[in-house]
Amino acid sequence: MAGTTSMRMREALNAALREEMQRDESVFLMGEDIGVFEGAFKVTEGLMKEFGEARVRDTPISENTIVGAGVGAAMAGMRPVVELMTVNFSLLAFDQIINHAASIPYMFNGQVRVPLVVRMPGGGGHQLGPTHSHSFEAMFLQIPGILVACPSTAADGKALLKSAIRDDNPVVFIEHETLYGMRGEVPDDEDVTLPFGHAAVRREGEDVTIVGILKMAHEAERAAKTLSEDHGIEADVIDPRTLRPLDLDTILESVRKTNRVVIVEEGWPHGGVGANLAALIQEQAFDYLDAPIQRVTGADVPMPYSKRLEQSAIPHPEHIVSAVLETTAGAK
């Protein structure tokens, strides 16, 4: 069995890009400051040196156009990976992502595919204020025609990115800014990929199901530890890893066992990932629920800059513990 190496998330993503570029000549990168500057978050460090300026392309500040150029190149047989500096800037590229990348394969009846990956980091915690700190998983989740990945560990980051590049569908690949420095064991084997639509069960318990994505997958684990130690409550903790396709089966299986659900995300509550998942769960497993599904979300405001306001607007383990206690009240 091949071994593993301890890597930070940014290094794991970097390795995925490098390996896929070595493996497949049609893979190339485009993005603002990804070459000479080596990326705002240093995910593309060293890649321009290794692969040259033709395959690692610094672009002007033109988000919609570089995503669109990615769509075109993908239609013509390349496998572009476009980096957008933050998810907030992806809003400038929504036309190409939704009207074009997502629709083209369907609109032209499958005559052409768009094997494009658009990577973007999001999330709060760095005091970047209302134009740089949001979480748009829910918005991307809503769009038929694109896949959505949201890895929370270095190993998943690498394996999912490799799968995304090899996938024939357009993929929105969402990273979390505060996870780039996080370390994890990553398999050395270059053939390890992670097919989309497979959730990870990070912890097992009988009393409640906690679903969390990105940074909130970690906060959910921390909350579960507290629940176990301080309250004698044992939680299933599930990280869906991809939102489209969504491994609803794993979540439903857990719900049928625990009968209680808390869904955690950093994004806004209205029309959020949790709102969607709660609807799916009650449609599919209403008879198994013993309490209302609880959601823990980011505050319903643009992300404020002030450190205290920002931290108060982001979910923490305390919020999750409190929501679990609400949903399990009277059960024990």
Binding site: Q127, L128, P130, T131, H132, P304, S306, K307, L309
Partner: peptide, 16 residues
């Protein structure tokens, strides 16, 4: 500094 007496009461920060 992200404080109460800032031009936007700490909502916007240096960039805003």
């Amino acid at each position: 500094f992200g404080r109460e007496d800032g031009t936007a009461r700490g909502r916007g920060g240096s960039m805003h």
